[in-house]
Write a protein that binds this DNA or RNA. Structure first.
Length: 858
RNA sequence: GCAGGGGUGGCUGAGGUGGUCAAAGGCGCCGGGCUUAAGAUCCGGUCCCGUAUGGGUUCGUGGGUUCGUAUCCCACCCCCUGCACCA
């Protein structure tokens, strides 16, 4: 429809507009470097594709799943077409936001409600987000209840109501029909009540649904002068028409129980209709108590005019009534669905022609498969109603059944039909014999991971699920659900003018001006990027300025996919800087001119760690973490390596080679640059990442040594500030005191005790048996456990826990790095001692913990 | 009204199987190295207090469970989204 509207506006043909837009989007996608298998591209306006829409449709007609019916439908006058229920949002067209009115028309429907139960049940088998499941459940609207037949006094007809509360049947004091209900008209015909009913009817049916909902709180009704007969008591019950009863929900008729339904209560009050209590809310409650308001909860039946019901509660009460009705053939248990048949016909040109020929003698006849596709003609005139009606070549067609001259159906299908099965066509896109090969479809489907906007929760995502099941039942494949896992990506937002008092967002044209409604000053608020607000950024411009990879990096790193994000120019620039830095990385690394060093072992181990982490992140779809590793952490590692004196050119190649593979996922163009600089064959996108061996013991030792040194430096820096306030001048030397070995023994025992499931409280018992507590320091050590070690034991991460129990020699490790530590802390001299040993003349070992030595500045 | 999802430091936004959380990353801000200078880059800092590696207060509010809770339980407040005289 957008293509057709654009065509009308530009005085062009929708086909050309569509092709033009596709070309432009394709170019954009390619420029962004997305990888698609373009051989599988399908075009919904290609007869090779839409012929299958038509074929399915004729099959559906055969199955009774597609049918034509005259009914009041939603009409959008600016789009000049009807709309399905789910395409009307708050009484307005989901596309153009224009008002939608009710109109009686003969239209094609697909019987989605037939699959409603399966669509609800299926939700439990697929990984859709909760909110989407909830939206779909709401929309499907399962409601258990009963249909109850009321005879009409003096007539052969009867009327049927749907209720979820059969237990309140004895409280029915009137029955309300939708004004459009066919019985309403026939009951009042020729009676004094006709005029009043007609007024209500005309008012209600002329109103757009939007206005109708707005006026819903004004409950109005007129008596129709007729009486229904209560199916169990035989009582005469007045029949009313009410503006609040919706013709198309349930049966379009309601049994009104003012005592136990809020809406009916209000109505009865304003029209002075009796209110009767038939339930009490407490067991044994007062059956005569006045009803001050409707008591809508389940309750215990009272005042039943028939024996055997009083005292029943809830489901038991409901079934008792239904059973009593069943005996009289006046009612049964049913399930009612809110979802209505999918109205698929559109009075527009740009869609799949509905493959039907209307014949005066045979009626609506499906076009036989051999005559498909029914192609869209080019000789049409736009802008004067349904364009297809202007093509005589299209209109004339002979009836496939009797051969007499017929008239081709001019409605086309909702374009949501196209998107209801394209994923199946992807599995076998070039097949001209079949819609798709069954084996191929079964092999590829279902879609493992589907990303889409939340706005399709009640539309595309229900249609596609329905269509998949319907095709399955035609025997075309064996898939129950099209999409296994759904992720709703967030919107990209950008600031737009916003009026706080009106609660409205305005186009960026208004920024700086006062609110057009209330003239108060406009502030800014983040809003979904949209053309109408003008708060958009052009992807082309961004790519032009920063390159595709920068934009990709920004999009991946700015927010998690589900979160939605605010567009930020500064963040984009930050990503650009990262890209530039990475772009220069090969040159930087190849400029290393030293020899082998201890740090080489460290980096070799580090690289293995990073690759492993990266792969784990990718496996979890944790793209942000993956990008963080490939584009940020790796840079930090290079910096640390050089800061620690590493500059071995031999290592550069290995690092860049593996690193390039990590980069290629999110920034493929950059990775290809690296690949070329590394003088590798072909493209990295076609190369496999080489496997790395496991981390060696030597590498592990190097990694541990650097890790502990780094964390030591962090705390030593903090303390230095405070310490220097004690010293007369700046510190010039430091003594590092490694925790005495008994602390490590204590930590190891505690960790083991806890890992075996011991309660921390009970460790004190174990501790008092340990060797270290046998001497005269027992009290001190017990105190140390409770105050220091207990909280600390839980703070160590897995890596630290391993380290504590490893052979790591903290003294040796730190001694080896003493000059680096001195340099980092700006000291002349650093000494490392074991706490409480002969070397330790500081007397400050008390503060030292395993992995966290104390330091004394001088 | 009903249903679903949320409330985290200056902003943004992770984490949420109780201990690895004073809480990642980004942005912003501050200091330092480099530079003639700017930018880029590198290093450090960024809740409060602190004469030594510590203490205090924090993850909407109030309770609770626990040796311990941003994380579990209960109540409440607020925000977003959807449905809505649905019988």
């Amino acid at each position: 429809m957008p293509a057709e509207n654009a065509a009308i506006k530009e005085n062009a043909h929708p086909h050309d507009i569509t092709e033009r837009n596709m070309a432009s989007i394709t170019a954009q996608i390619k420029r962004m470097g997305f990888s698609y298998d373009w051989r599988r591209q399908v075009k919904s306006h290609d007869p090779r594709y839409y012929r299958w829409n038509q074929w399915f449709f004729t099959k559906f007609i055969e199955q009774g799943l597609a049918y034509q019916e005259f009914a009041p439908v939603n009409w959008c006058s600016s789009c000049e077409t009807v709309l399905a229920n789910e395409q009307v949002k708050a009484g307005r067209c989901w596309r153009c936001n224009g008002p939608v009115v009710q109109k009686g028309m003969s239209q094609w429907f697909l019987d989605i409600p037939k699959y409603a139960q399966e669509l609800v049940d299926g939700l439990d088998t697929i990984a859709f987000p909760e909110n989407v499941k909830s939206l779909q459940r709401d929309w499907l609207g399962r409601s258990e209840g009963a249909e109850i037949k009321f005879a009409i006094e003096g007539r052969d007809e009867e009327l049927t109501v749907f209720t979820t509360r059969p237990d309140t049947l004895f409280g029915t004091t009137f029955v309300t029909l939708a004004p459009e209900h066919p019985l309403s008209a026939s009951l009042v015909a020729g009676t004094p009540h006709e005029a009043a009913w007609k007024e209500l009817h005309d008012e209600v049916s002329a109103m757009s649904e939007f206005d109708r909902i707005k006026n819903m709180n004004k409950k109005r009704g007129v008596p129709l002068g007729a009486f229904a007969i209560h199916p169990l008591t035989g009582e005469r019950i007045p029949i009313w028409a009410g503006n609040f009863v919706i013709a198309s929900y349930g049966t379009g008729a309601v049994m009104a129980v003012p005592g136990h339904d809020e809406r009916d209560f209000d109505f009865a009050k304003s029209y002075d209709i009796p209110i009767r209590r038939v339930l009490v809310m407490d067991e044994g409650g007062d059956a005569e108590a006045e009803l001050k308001k409707a008591e809508c909860d389940l309750g215990w039946m009272v005042n039943s005019p028939i024996e055997g019901f009083d005292g029943l509660y809830g489901d038991a009460a409901k079934s008792a009534i239904v059973e009593a009705l069943a005996v009289k053939n006046a009612g049964s248990q049913t399930i009612n669905w809110k979802i209505r048949p999918w109205l698929v016909s559109r009075q527009r040109y740009w869609g799949t022609p509905i493959p039907v020929i209307h014949c005066d003698s045979c009626g609506a006849v499906p076009v036989p498969a051999k005559d498909l596709p029914v192609e869209l003609p080019r000789d049409v005139v736009f802008g004067e109603g349904n364009p297809l009606e202007t093509s005589t070549s299209f209109l004339t067609a002979d009836c496939p059944k009797c051969g007499k001259e017929g008239r081709r159906e001019t409605d086309t299908m909702d374009t949501f039909v196209d998107s209801s099965w394209y994923f199946l066509r992807f599995t076998d896109p070039l097949n001209d014999e079949l819609c798709f090969d069954e084996a191929k479809a079964n092999h590829w489907m279902n879609v493992d991971f589907y990303c889409g906007g939340i706005e399709h929760a009640q539309m595309h995502l229900i249609y596609a699920r329905f269509w998949t099941k319907a095709l399955r039942d035609l025997g075309l494949h064996q898939i129950d659900e099209p999409f296994n896992e759904l992720l709703c990506q967030g919107m990209v937002n950008k600031a737009a003018p916003w009026c706080e008092s009106c609660g409205l967002t305005f186009s960026v044209d208004h920024s700086g001006s006062p609110c057009p409604h209330c003239t108060s000053e406009l502030t800014e608020r983040s809003a979904k990027m949209s053309k109408s607000l003008g708060n958009t950024v052009s992807p082309e411009d961004m790519i032009e300025r920063y390159g595709a990879d920068t934009v990709r990096l920004f999009i991946l790193f700015a927010a998690n996919p589900t979160a939605g994000m605010d567009w930020s120019d500064t963040a984009l620039e930050a990503n650009y800087r990262v890209m530039m830095q990475l772009y220069g990385m090969p040159e930087r690394l190849f400029a290393w001119d030293g020899g082998a060093s201890n740090m080489d072992v460290w980096f070799e181990g580090r690289l293995k760690q990073r690759v492993t982490e990266f792969q784990a992140a990718m496996d979890n779809y944790d793209l942000r973490r993956a990008v963080e590793l490939s584009h940020y952490e790796m840079v930090k590692d290079v910096n640390w390596y050089t800061r620690r004196g590493g500059n071995n050119p031999e290592l550069a190649r290995t690092i860049l080679r593996h690193w390039a593979h990590m980069l290629s996922i999110s920034t493929p163009h950059l990775a290809e640059e690296w690949w070329a600089v590394l003088d590798m064959d072909g493209l990295i996108s076609g190369a496999e990442m080489p496997h790395l061996t496991a981390i060696t013991e030597q590498e592990q030792t190097a990694l541990d040594g650097e890790t502990t040194t780094r964390s030591f430096l962090e705390s030593a820096r903090k303390i230095k500030d405070v310490a220097e306030r004690h010293l007369d001048g700046p510190a010039t030397s430091a003594t590092i005191i490694v925790a005495p070995s008994w602390k490590r023994d204590l930590a190891v025992s505690a960790l083991e005790f806890l890992e075996q499931g011991g309660n921390p409280k009970q460790f004190i018992g174990v501790l008092s048996q340990m060797d270290i507590t046998q001497g005269d320091r027992k009290g001190e050590i017990m105190g140390f456990w409770g105050k220091k070690m207990l909280p600390q034991v839980f703070k160590w991460d897995d890596e630290s826990r391993v380290l504590i129990r490893s052979s790591l020699d903290e003294v040796a490790s730190l001694t080896a790095r003493a000059s680096f530590i001195a340099q980092e802390l700006g000291l002349d001299h650093v000494r490392v001692v074991l706490g409480e040993s002969d070397d330790d003349d500081t007397g400050r070992a008390g503060g030292a913990m395993p992995l966290s030595p104390a330091v004394v500045y001088a």
